[in-house]
Computed example of a mutant assay.
Amino acid sequence: MRLMKGLFLIALGASLGVAHAADEQSRPGPQCYGASFGSTKVDTSVAAPRLAPSGTFEQEAAFDKEASGKLEVRNKQLVSVPPEIERIRKGYTSSFVGGGLNNGLSEWFGIDLERHLVVQVVRRSYTSRDPMMRPFSDVDLVKNPHVIARKWQSDSWSEEEVVLLSQGQPGDLALFVCSANALWAHHQPLPNPVTDPPSLPLMSDTLSAYIYLLDFGKDQSEVLLKRASGGDPVDTAAKVVRSHAGVIDW
């Protein structure tokens, strides 16, 4: 059964026009019946990129296989958005910041279509000053030999994040692009942040959350965004991509 499923995904990926060139940096992104990601866009939001086109990413080393399986203790606080998520220029990003019983827990998930990568990040934070936060142990690198881990702590605060990069499956990525293109081309009223602020239940265990498609312009001077929601076809397609990636056991 697993063999048949694998053969089906390989055949489907080929039929949808997925590239299989050896050079990951130069090969084209996954396509949906010949259409590239975001080929038609309507009702998009525009944002300025966080880094200039010539800027360098802090964590280039995170893409070095020799960096995996190690815990790096840092001398400064972790950046607000993990660099592996920040690096995504074309694809999908989601974020979850916990509140209530999940206070101190943050998670990010991304699909990097330029590098055909699946990015997963889990971050835990703790301070004894917050009774809702729970202390945590360092990630077990024996159970997670392929992750990248970073930690920072002061007298009153500690935080650690664990990053797992996995190769996306061709068929999964092609199906994701098909779903994403339908959302890019869908007329969607943009929310007014003043009259339509995001709302969460008063006692929610989620402090904030978002799901976005994103695509940097050709000159990298702006970012086009399209908001998605949990349970959307795009979200479902992203979960399929994630289901065939590795898992962080922490």
Rank of each mutant, 00 (worst) to 15 (best):
M1P: 05
M1S: 13
R2T: 12
L3K: 14
L3E: 12
G6H: 07
I10P: 01
A11C: 11
G17D: 08
A21H: 07
E24C: 01
E24K: 06
R27T: 05
P28Q: 08
G29C: 00
G29A: 12
G29D: 02
C32D: 09
S36H: 09
F37Q: 02
G38N: 04
S39C: 01
T40K: 07
D43M: 00
A47N: 04
R50Q: 05
A52M: 02
G55K: 00
G55F: 00
G55V: 00
T56N: 07
F57K: 02
F57C: 01
A61C: 02
A61R: 11
A61H: 10
D64F: 03
K65I: 09
K65Y: 03
S68M: 09
G69V: 08
V73A: 09
R74A: 10
Q77R: 15
Q77G: 05
V79E: 13
V81I: 15
I85K: 12
E86D: 15
R87H: 14
I88W: 12
I88K: 08
R89N: 13
K90E: 13
G91M: 10
T93H: 05
S94R: 15
S94T: 15
S94L: 13
S95D: 04
F96P: 03
F96H: 10
V97E: 11
V97W: 05
V97D: 12
G99P: 01
G100I: 09
L101M: 10
W108T: 06
F109Q: 14
F109E: 13
L113Y: 13
L113R: 13
L117P: 01
V118I: 15
V119E: 13
V122A: 08
R123V: 03
S125V: 02
S128D: 12
P131V: 13
M133E: 14
P135N: 08
F136P: 05
V139W: 05
D140Y: 08
L141I: 14
V142F: 04
V142S: 15
N144I: 11
N144W: 09
H146M: 09
V147W: 08
I148W: 14
I148P: 00
R150W: 11
D155I: 07
D155M: 10
S156L: 10
E160V: 04
V163P: 03
L164S: 11
L165P: 04
G168C: 05
P170R: 14
G171E: 08
L173A: 09
A174H: 07
L175P: 01
F176T: 07
C178D: 06
C178S: 10
A180H: 08
N181V: 06
N181T: 06
N181W: 12
N181Q: 07
L183I: 00
L183R: 14
H186L: 12
H186Q: 15
H187Y: 03
Q188M: 10
Q188K: 14
P189K: 10
P191C: 10
N192C: 04
V194W: 01
S199V: 13
S204E: 06
L207G: 04
A209I: 01
Y212C: 02
F216N: 08
G217M: 06
G217N: 14
G217Q: 11
K218W: 01
Q220E: 14
S221H: 12
L225V: 08
L225R: 13
S229G: 06
S229F: 09
G230C: 01
P233M: 04
P233T: 07
V234R: 04
V234C: 05
D235H: 14
D235R: 00
T236A: 13
A237P: 03
A238R: 06
K239D: 11
V240Y: 00
R242L: 08
V247E: 06
